[in-house]
Design a protein around this nucleic acid. Structure first.
Lengths: 229, 229
DNA sequence: CCAAAAGTGTTTGCTCTACACCCATGG
DNA sequence: CCATGGGTGTAGAGCAAACACTTTTGG
């Protein structure tokens, strides 16, 4: 091992890509087609790539999302950096992990092909066995998403540009895993002034629903309740 | 440049070390004694070190704290990983930044000597000019600390093992930068059952104050107020 | 006219906030 | 006995939670 290799650990950028599909919160996972010496074929992992010398961290994360989703304009946030010595049997690897939220319409397209990997959406409540520490990473991402959903407006990042009040409420119910009161929900979301009504309505079964869109200028963080006054 | 050097960016671990001193929230900063080619002598920076091949990230952060504080048993939490291309003129450097909280008594000892650096505690409200992106890093650390103080019990990490109710309240007031109501503060902290009274009292001027200590088994996170019900 | 989903207010309880005086000790 | 900081309770306002029926459309 030369001195440079010894000093510099390998850096990867991995991404937890969440979306809503089939009325579930789902996450993108990849499987390698062939055994690479360290991982047997068909091992499930989070998508990601080795960090290239000329890429900023965040931009590498956007690239990893774009590779599978075909879209750079997604919500992206750094999750955590994992750097234990023994987390990867293939050597010393540091993973800077981001999580992304993909709106319903962008995630309903078929996933692209890749010569080495296959990708699938997987329900967060029915995950396959994941390699390395990826299960722990994913669970942490899920915890952060649920937590953030409660005090900020990230939920809108999972919806298309226009949506109905029932659709937002369902989004919240799916992610939080509990039923919410319709009248209270509507009152609060309207009082918060973070969405605006559109002229159109959406038909379908039952009475047509008013469409709304998220106001880009919205201030949508609520102060945390204090432990002490 | 050989291919390995090109592929692997340098990884550093930096730490924002907070403490309470002189009734202020202070942070540890270091100054290089000599010009190293990139940074002129006496430039202020956050303490930290290049990541060694055989050190886990977190353990490297504990080492960086121990080097200056002489103590490993401190509160430590990962803050963020900075990885823009141009953040360090000396080359491509990724900084995994942690923040640490040092109790009053451990930070009142004199700081150790180092052949290349001098260290000083600096008031967070009167910071010197900092190199690179370290000002932004420090401000983010401060924001996180203030935020976390409100909904969790990290504040106790800045106090010695035994403390009076007035001391905790002062801690909160210093960090949040606002006065708090004594009766409300005491009622809430006692109702939360996260501290327990000790038999001793502390004398001094005025009526002696009851001593308390933090209960290790305390569940001290308050649920965030929800944006939606 | 029936099924399906959208839309709409009020009451009750609880939590948060504001606020002022007596107590114990040391000098 | 005086100065200093420690310790204590209550009333009013604002916020949160529970709850059921009417409306609009398509088939």
């Amino acid at each position: 091992m030369n001195p440079v290799e010894e000093q510099l650990p390998q850096v990867r950028v991995d991404v937890v890509i969440f979306t809503l599909r089939e009325s579930q919160l789902q996450v993108l996972l990849v499987q390698n087609k062939l055994d690479d010496g360290y991982t047997p074929a068909h091992t499930w992992k989070l998508p990601g790539k080795a960090l290239e010398a000329d890429k900023a961290l965040e931009s590498a994360a956007y690239n990893a999302v774009e590779e599978w989703i075909g879209e750079r304009e997604t919500y992206l946030e750094q999750l955590y950096t994992y750097g234990n010595l023994d987390r990867d049997p293939g050597g010393r690897v540091i993973s800077v992990v981001y999580y992304a939220l993909i709106p319903i319409d962008a995630s309903s397209k078929p996933l692209p092909q890749n010569p080495e990997l296959t990708a699938h959406w997987s329900d967060v409540n029915q995950l396959p066995k994941l390699a390395l520490d990826h299960k722990a990473i994913l669970e942490y991402g899920l915890r952060r998403l649920r937590y953030k959903l409660e005090y900020s407006a990230v939920g809108f990042q999972l919806l298309p540009e226009e949506f109905t009040l029932s659709e937002i409420q369902q989004t919240y119910e799916i992610i939080l895993g509990e039923k919410l009161d319709k009248r209270n929900f509507r009152r609060r979301i309207l009082e918060a002034k973070i969405i605006e009504a559109m002229p159109r309505r959406r038909g379908g079964e039952g009475r047509p629903a008013r469409l709304y869109r998220y106001r880009e200028d919205a201030v949508a963080e609520v102060k945390a309740r204090r432990l002490f006054p």
